[in-house]
Design a protein around this nucleic acid. Structure first.
Length: 926
RNA sequence: GCCCGAAUGGUGGAAUCGGUAGACACGCGGGACUUAAAAUCCCGUGGCCUUACAGCUGUGCGGGUUCAAGUCCCGCUUCGGGUACCA
């Protein structure tokens, strides 16, 4: 009996070998170049991994192994983002401590990951809920509290420097990021008491306590960051969210807006992801202008990108939350305004979105147009957002569609400002055309192009002191408090109502035990239940915990030096590993984690902890693997199921059926009867004796019964087959449904590979005989293609090439070591288990992981001159193929040697030359 | 609404810089081996016409540039993703 490819035996043997010999252990090694390949670490959910999760992990594993074979010292770690809401929600329901379920889930994840044969250095594992880890999350927070952002230096500075500045000259000559523009003298500063000083400094700290409009989710009992809310409901759980002002810890991410924007240019990320971040940061250049209030010395400041439209302002609008509302509303209007504010407050985000009716109310007050001197009514409406710009706008209904809708609804005048525009039906929003109706008070824009008019107006208002040029960003500061249990405790205590940071020597501040994971009776967060939650001096500790993104914002740095208890990362490790060369993960983190960690890293860079300003040089977004659900069709009010082709003849209800009892859309009827008690006596209407199921592509999830577990695939086909098949499915960045049909193809490839290396008796067939030229050509075509394709993350075409190469070598009956050894090394990143087996069978006693990636001998790849003729103008040209890297001189010689050759024309950038009889025009370089 | 991306056989997909479209795999059809099945191997497989040789046609639709277009340009259609009263 011939010995066949026994993947179970092979895979278990070499997994054990890798662990025993610490093959994947990595250390700093200045004699070798470093390479850092990182996966986005998972949140260990209770559902375990499905076949979609490992897609990115397999890709990064292949790349890591490839880089290692090419002589790089590769850091490829893994860990867990283990704080978060689901574990806590589960704890509330079951009473089980989140630490217990988290540990259990991690153990399950580890078991599943281990089956697939990844080359992680598990000695470097991190968990965000581990005190040794979150000590540094707390530490970074303290440093942010003790820093402010200097706009001139474009970096974070110690808050003590700012205090010194206040001592010297108050707020004079200050250009720093802040929550509100304050103005005081050095004497005033010195006269302040401790409390007032601390309140003042809070306005500048990078981590600060601020009253901000937050997304409050009553169901979850916590606030959420902007990226944690989608379509007005929470990402976790899908609960409604309302806007509310609360005093919360915030991070001054907005201070870094410009650097976050600029930094994108140097990154090797996809254009679409960079674009998403650019939109999220939302830089817009415009002007701030002051509108004096009629009968008062005060002025409202507004922000506009269309300064040129100042002559078309027919009203102003304040956000309902604007502080001006209370001060401006006249007694006659007060009742109506109060009613409006009350109604707006009650609406959830979702209701605001679903219902886009134009609403608003007149405040009774007027402002004065700084150019025309005319009074303009001030309205209040929720289409103006408190959080953007100044929370007040000048409305130009002729040239802004939202202002237009409002003017139409409340019968306000509309003044067109662009020559020839028609505003009878809708506004004219385009920034094109020549300006009209715009002259007064020393400014004449008439006849100018819109773009010139904007520039002229900005210059004018600045010179007259009516306003100033201003850049606004959509990016908001991150709200950093969560009223939850399962997160990092803040290293903060309160004295006389003011927050103070713990001393670094007191870190980590451990998460305390509580009797229940719910808010207290008085509405305080769960930490309010912790006994003795205070400092040794008896000061109360902060009751909020940090959000999910806190722990994931600097984990890539911690992997460099995970056991260091004196620093987040040692200077030595940081200087060597620098930053992540390849980061693999999903696009869903584009506006969350990938913004926060860039911010966090820039801050650490500013304080000298991180060696580079950008954490992730190149980013690969793997697509999602969707589920392919199957359906059976039950005839209404019966227990009879009708096959897909006949279902239209009946009144049927489609029902999800477990994909694991369906094969090639044919239902296993017995398994179906056994699946659920209700179906035990189910009847079937078949076609051709079979029950055909319907199908649909949906998210892979338990409730759709379409989850395919990788363990099952590994069991049936082996890890190498799973790895290769996942890569073979298509380009790594594309989303696609999982379809187990087709996996036989790659499994067959591995069996045939095994057969190539062995004779009929199962003995190694490799011999020391020299390879033929044909065999070497087949090998080197493979080397070139696979090397190129790995570098561009085109793993699907690598697998195809392996199949072609194997076919060629089998046809050529190749058994030469000269070919089989490099072939094994090529295979090692993709199918490490079988490669390790073959490598050792070939007589090596070290791991194939430490082999050397074969170099391509290009001289073997020169094509035999003529590819094919092309006809042009009655003459025939020939495409000839030449090896890459030839000098112009050599190309000329080669072309002249061709029977239809002649002169060569392009002297420098030779890529392609067609050979015409008597003249070379184009040469294809192979 | 705005911003990005995609569209190729029955299916997943290949074609890297504009150079023989459909590699590779699945599925399907035929055959060999076998008592039979599994496994393995061989042949065929975009469409139309043809006994065959050959020919024509063909990369969502309509134009254009080029000796040459799946690939570049202009205008659409459909699908996917991001974002949305951001002034």
């Amino acid at each position: 009996m011939a010995k066949e490819y026994n993947f179970k035996d092979i895979e278990s043997r070499w997994k054990e070998y890798w662990v025993k010999n610490k093959v994947y252990k990595v250390e700093v090694d200045p004699t070798r170049p470093k390479f850092y390949v990182l996966d986005m670490f998972p949140y260990p959910s209770g559902a375990g991994l499905h076949v979609g999760h490992p897609l990115g992990y397999i890709a990064s594993d292949i790349y890591s192994r490839f880089k290692r074979l090419n002589g790089f010292n590769v850091l490829h770690p893994m860990g867990y983002d283990s704080y978060g809401l689901p574990a806590e929600q589960y704890a509330i329901q079951t009473g089980q401590h989140p630490a217990v379920t988290t540990d259990k889930n991690i153990a399950r994840y580890r078991e599943q990951l281990d089956k697939i044969g990844f080359c992680y250095d598990w000695d470097r594992e991190v968990r965000t809920c581990d005190p040794g880890y979150y000590k540094w999350t707390q530490w970074a927070f303290i440093r942010m509290f003790e820093s402010y952002y200097c706009n001139r230096a474009r970096r974070a500075m110690p808050i003590a420097d700012l205090e010194a500045h206040f001592d010297r000259c108050g707020t004079a000559d200050l250009d720093v990021a802040c929550s509100a523009e304050l103005s005081f003298t050095a004497d005033e500063w010195k006269a302040m008491d401790t409390h007032t000083r601390r309140e003042t400094l809070m306005n500048y700290r990078i981590a600060y306590l601020g009253n901000t409009m937050v997304n409050w989710c009553p169901e979850l009992g916590t606030v959420l960051a902007n990226d944690e809310v989608v379509d007005g409901v929470s990402v976790r759980g899908g609960f409604p969210v309302v806007q509310k002002v609360m005093r919360q810890w915030c991070l001054r991410v907005s201070a870094y807006a410009q650097r976050l924007l600029d930094g994108l240019d140097g990154l090797d990320w996809t254009d679409s992801l960079k674009e998403t971040q650019r939109n999220w940061i939302g830089r817009s250049e415009g002007a701030e202008m002051q509108f004096r209030i009629k009968g008062s010395d005060e002025a409202i400041t507004i922000f506009t990108t269309r300064a040129d439209t100042i002559f078309g302002v027919t009203f102003m609008v304040l956000a309902p939350e604007s502080e001006w509302v209370g001060r401006l509303t006249t007694p006659e209007c007060r009742a109506e305004v109060e009613a409006y504010l009350e109604a707006t407050r009650k609406r959830t985000e979702r209701e605001r979105m679903a219902d886009r009716r134009v609403t608003g109310v007149f405040s009774g007050a007027y402002a004065i147009n700084p150019l025309t001197g005319e009074p303009i009514p001030i309205w209040i409406s929720d289409y103006v957002l408190a959080g953007y710009g100044t929370g007040a706008i000048m409305a130009v209904p002729a040239h802004d569609s939202r202002d237009y809708a409002f003017a139409r609804a409340f019968n306000l005048p509309i003044i067109p400002l662009i020559e020839g525009c028609d505003v009878s039906e809708q506004s004219y929003d385009a920034k094109e055309g020549h300006v009209i109706n715009s002259c007064g008070n020393g400014l004449d824009l008439n006849g100018l192009d819109v773009k010139d008019a904007i520039a002229r107006t900005k210059q004018f208002v600045e010179s007259r002191g009516i306003g100033r040029v201003k850049v606004n960003y959509r990016l908001r500061d991150a709200i950093f408090s969560r009223q939850r249990y399962w997160g990092e405790p803040f290293p903060v205590y309160y004295k006389d109502g003011d927050p103070y940071m713990l001393d670094e020597s007191q870190l980590p501040l451990l998460l305390p035990e509580v009797d229940k994971f719910l808010p207290t009776e008085t509405g305080e967060p769960p930490l309010g239940r912790a006994k003795g939650w205070q400092t040794p001096e008896g000061h109360p500790l902060e009751l909020n915990t940090m959000p999910g993104f806190a722990g994931s914002s600097a984990y890539y740095l911690r992997y460099m030096d995970p056991h260091n208890d004196r620093a987040l990362v040692s200077a030595e490790a940081d200087a060597y590993w620098q930053n992540v060369d390849i980061y693999v993960g999903g696009t869903e983190h584009a506006t969350g984690h990938l913004i926060y960690s860039r911010f966090w890293n820039k801050f650490l860079f500013d304080i000298g902890v991180s060696a580079t300003e950008e954490p992730f040089k190149k980013l690969i977004n793997q697509g999602m693997i969707q589920g392919r659900s199957n359906f059976v069709y039950r005839i209404k009010d019966t227990n009879t199921f009708v096959s897909l082709g006949l279902k239209d003849q009946y009144d049927v209800t489609p029902i999800h059926v477990d994909v694991n009892i369906v094969s090639a859309d044919i239902l296993d009827i017995e398994a179906f009867r056994a699946w659920r008690p209700d179906y035990a006596d189910a009847e079937f209407i078949l076609e051709d004796g079979k029950y055909i199921c319907g199908w649909a592509v949906e998210k892979m999830s338990k409730s759709m019964f379409n989850v395919v577990n990788p363990d099952m695939i590994v069991d049936r086909y082996g890890a190498d087959t799973l790895r290769m098949y996942e890569m073979f499915l298509g380009p790594i960045d594309q989303s696609k449904p999982w379809d187990t049909n087709g996996i036989d193809g790659v499994h067959k490839f591995l069996r045939r590979t095994y057969r190539l290396f062995h004779d009929a008796e199962g003995n190694l067939a490799a011999a020391d005989t020299p390879a033929t030229t044909e065999q070497l050509k087949a090998l080197h075509r493979g080397i070139r293609k696979i090397t190129d394709d790995i570098e561009r993350f085109a793993f699907n075409t690598c697998i195809s090439r392996f199949m072609i190469m194997l076919g060629e070598l089998s046809d050529l009956k190749c058994n030469s070591r000269e070919v089989l050894e490099p072939f094994t090394v090529l295979l090692a990143p993709f199918a490490p288990h079988i490669a390790e087996e073959l490598w050792h069978e070939l007589g090596h006693d070290t791991s194939v992981c430490d082999a050397k990636w074969p170099a391509c001998d290009k001289s073997l790849l020169v094509e035999d001159t003529v590819n094919y003729p092309v006809s042009f103008n009655g003459k025939t040209r020939f495409m000839i193929a030449l090896p890459a890297g030839m000098q112009p001189k050599q190309i000329e010689e080669a072309a002249l040697a061709h029977e239809n050759s002649a002169k060569y024309i392009d002297g420098k950038t030779v890529r392609k030359v067609i050979v015409v009889p008597g003249k070379i025009i184009n040469i294809v370089v192979a």
